[in-house]
Amino acid sequence: MNRNEVYERLNAVFREVFDDENLTVADATTAADVEDWDSLSHITLIAAVEDEFDISFDMKTVVGLKCVGDMVDAILQEM
């Protein structure tokens, strides 16, 4: 799976978690750019991403994610 394919599925996850059909994320997107992306929804998002890609992040990875680009790197690494 390449980066673009990851983004295609990842955007669908973001739209579902944050209830925003127009939401599109990119490498530089951070929690500050997405309304309602707080620590509570972060864990919901991580669980949804893990389910979507059938992977499991360890806590070191979860706390180290600073932007969506980091998340995509972590997904590609886990797959």
Binding site: S39, I43, I46, A47, M59, V62, V63
Partner: peptide, 16 residues
Amino acid sequence: FKDYLFFSLQRSRSFR
């Protein structure tokens, strides 16, 4: 509490 209890519970198998 957020990092060691809330996250641990939320990421536990039973909660998921």
